[in-house]
Design a protein around this nucleic acid. Structure first.
Lengths: 160, 160
DNA sequence: TATTGTTATACTCTATAACTATA
DNA sequence: TATAGTTATAGAGTATAACAATA
């Protein structure tokens, strides 16, 4: 098979939204932790980057600052995250998970992984490997612009 | 490589939202046709299924009837779709694209395909083929439940 | 003056519940 | 009674523009 970019684009545009719909429903759905996909991603980022600023999270997720500010309002209100002023630069805000936030994140992750894993068992091992490789190939293509820029600067400082 | 369902799930959960964010931004963005992803999908379905009912579209896209009704409000208001009562069963509604809707759909499709194709040129031909195969493998896994059910009934009537 | 974040405002997406009209 | 759709209501996601506070 010789897949042109145009053909692949067509396929991606058709399949990706369906996939996301299924993931969203699972995450927000009945059992589990009832978080939206963006909330889940924000919580995951905070788990890996304790004390991150609002700008850090927004850049990573690819949201504007006001959008992320509002999203964090929801998480703070539900006591899943803690928001404090940075002592050194009082314009900044430092964000971290609460224990409850950590638990909810893990529950959401477990339930969504279980759902996806179940669905993916319908593929052959070879197909699963193909999907894995495809995702790994796609990952760097869709970083948020700001994040790609940060990465570029970093690799400029420490050239490979 | 031997990818377990769990590993693939993890990868999918990380990459799919980023991909969708990029697609959404492109579609709603500056130039082109300014439609949301769900609107785009609804228009695409109507192009292929002229005279479809609201339920048909909702099932395909995976939205509830009220959600789809509201989405169609927007399309009708913008004169991208036409909504009429079915003469035979006056509970039903028949939907179709207007010429303008057709043009907007095509513009959105062109611009998004162009964007994705451009991004995908950064992959090697082999990687693109992998992505293509992955999407084809994933497609049947994420059909909306209602649609899968319809398909099951159809293949029951006409067994392969 | 530049940076960080929030508030104000305005859409769209999405759902559930209650309703209307038709069959 | 069952089906197709709309309206009412509510909350999240998202953006831009305007603002406040700090550096």
């Amino acid at each position: 098979m010789n897949a042109t970019p145009e053909q692949v684009a067509c396929e991606v545009l058709d399949v990706a939204p369906q996939m996301m719909r299924a993931i969203r429903e699972q995450m927000r759905g009945h059992r589990a932790a009832e978080v939206s996909v963006p909330q889940f991603r924000a919580l995951g980022f905070l788990e890996a980057h304790e004390g991150a600023s609002l700008t850090d999270v927004a850049d990573h997720i690819g949201l504007t600052l006001p959008s992320m500010s509002k999203l964090m309002d929801g998480l703070v209100e539900r006591k899943l995250a803690k928001r404090e002023f940075d002592a050194l630069d009082r314009r900044r805000v430092t964000l971290e998970l609460t224990p409850r936030g950590r638990a909810v994140l893990q529950a959401a992750r477990d339930s969504t992984h279980a759902y996806l894993a179940e669905v993916l068992t319908r593929l052959s091992p070879a197909e699963r490997t193909t999907v894995m490789q495809a995702m790994q190939a796609l990952r760097p293509l869709f970083k948020s612009e700001r994040e790609a820029q940060i990465e570029a600067e970093r690799s400029h400082d420490e050239p490979a």
